[in-house]
Write a protein that binds this DNA or RNA. Sequence first.
DNA 1: CTATCTGCAAACGTTTTGCATCTGT
DNA 2: ACAGATGCAAAACGTTTGCAGATAG
Lengths: 129, 129
Amino acid sequence: MEKYRQLNIKLTPQRLAILRYLEGNKEHPSAERIYKSVQKEFPTMSFATVYNTLEALKNIGNVQELKIDPSKKRYDPDMSNHHHLICKKCKSILDVYKDFKISLPDDLAGGFDILGNNIEFYGICEKCR
Amino acid sequence: MEKYRQLNIKLTPQRLAILRYLEGNKEHPSAERIYKSVQKEFPTMSFATVYNTLEALKNIGNVQELKIDPSKKRYDPDMSNHHHLICKKCKSILDVYKDFKISLPDDLAGGFDILGNNIEFYGICEKCR
DNA sequence: CTATCTGCAAACGTTTTGCATCTGT
DNA sequence: ACAGATGCAAAACGTTTGCAGATAG
């Protein structure tokens, strides 16, 4: 509770439950996964609240939306600079903690100010091989 | 027509129209964009046919599905190894043709067979700055 | 006290499906 | 001839919205 006060958002019990679910979570959960989990504690929990909370957390930079899955949004509470390695078969996701320091030559940047990059590695995981 | 015969899929007039629309297309169009364009030529064209054709083209490796846009799938007929640079403001997309030869050290690969990677650069484009 | 959040249900945009009919090969 | 494609409408799916009532600060 105390640790979340600094976020400067209204801390409802539902939001706290979502924050606790997300803390340290490496599953890159979808809204539904979050909903189902938090619903155990709050049977009346609604999707609106999940999405509303995720939106609030995104805005304060506490959570990021991942584009890893074409069929649904995934969320990641890990805001550190990291990349993802995805199994082509089972779609499992592994975090990759390394700064690759890729710089895009000016002639390829088309006048853009480059702010950053995100690498998606893909391959076949041990289990699927 | 002849040039598409090698694809080994049934070439209907609708599919040819979609293939022609996609050929050399750098817009990373959504299904709707494709639909709207091809519909001019085929007023009876349906989304089912667009999605069906895209699915067929994906399967033969003629088109790829992009995860660039969280709200809808985008399609890219460019199957060469390339990356994307996206404007955070206007969401415009620029192709980046360069092989960055990023190799993931074994200790970070978690037992995966790495097959490749895709980099999303983000920044602010000239117009938006 | 009041600005904001919750929960519900309805609405939305995208993608998929079932099925009768049609068509490329 | 027939496997497979088309077109239509309905359904499915993830996400967003409107609103009345509840609640954190």
